[in-house]
Design a protein around this nucleic acid. Sequence first.
DNA 1: GTCTATAGCATGATAGAC
DNA 2: GTCTATCATGCTATAGAC
Lengths: 201, 201
Amino acid sequence: MSQRGYHAVSMRDIAAQAAVNLGSVTHFFGTKENLLEEIYERHTRPMNQRRLELMTEAERVSDRRERLTALIRAFVIPAFSSSSDSVGGGVRFTRLRAILSMEGNETAHAIIARAFDQTSLYFLKALHRCLPEASEERILWRSHFLLGSLYYTLVNGDRITRLSQGAVDGEHPEQAVQELVDATVASLLELTHSPSLSQER
Amino acid sequence: MSQRGYHAVSMRDIAAQAAVNLGSVTHFFGTKENLLEEIYERHTRPMNQRRLELMTEAERVSDRRERLTALIRAFVIPAFSSSSDSVGGGVRFTRLRAILSMEGNETAHAIIARAFDQTSLYFLKALHRCLPEASEERILWRSHFLLGSLYYTLVNGDRITRLSQGAVDGEHPEQAVQELVDATVASLLELTHSPSLSQER
DNA sequence: GTCTATAGCATGATAGAC
DNA sequence: GTCTATCATGCTATAGAC
């Protein structure tokens, strides 16, 4: 399911993948929506906790640019961590979230709004503490773009490889994180530069 | 289909929406994949053409920052245009592309690679002409993030509204375009600033 | 608790009347 | 060319043996 989303994957697929019978899956989880909810519950808590830990660490950094970088890394790293899935998110879970966010799944949307907005709001506040000159609205937009870029890259990294004719590996996690963080730091820092010029609206 | 993707929408749904019989749909388009291909063919050409027109116009701008802004607008505007769907893309078609890019649909991926890479490559070249100091790889990453942000915002604009507690309307197209363009200009321009500092890798 | 079997339904696609 | 009717298949979910 983490590869192809909710609608594209059947309970039979899941049962086969788990080398177990179809009846067992539905017996254990009840409905398919319930299974999805279970997956979310299992990953959401450690993921958000890891993000909060890293953000708290980051806020102790004194240099502003470095603090901003650390904050953004705190948001991105747990989504990309590939080690044990239970220890804070993991690529596969994030990819699932990416697909679900586009599929417009009702259950997923409800869970996302309930569970992730807390962490997102904390992230926004921390960014604003780091960039007090910038308006909260513009920070919101740019951190929103971070999430969109993260999701898109996680699912469509091959596009980078293709368009660079193989010169860049878009599926290489470390490089993706680095580019994502660099670009976001740049875009957020710009909010503090010459506001009279860049906010000509 | 432009609202919920490929898997979530049945041929029956499509037939009902078109106030026509199911048999007619399959008779006319053949398979469901063929219908998807037809939709793509119908929208891709005018969309890409409009982008190229706007990019050509943009390249005549003398001031670099303004030229960069115009280039990015040339890429973004046709994707957001809501007027007549046939005249260059349109929100609904872009939303469909966004969902399909995440669903990992085989047909869609093939068509995207075939039809859109040309325009994307032209866009990349134009950006590089505008920012000759920046490496093509980094321009590629940041324009890739632009596309991810665009897709995500188009489908999940409500997240902006929610996280701002209603202060910002994430579904307002003009504002979304403006923020998207501003953020991308900032992130791309940064590639030309103090390369010794920002490319410490 | 994990299996088989199957109910009950929705799907994509086809055949054939008109 | 657009309808009705239907086929074959895949789906979620349940019932019941063991």
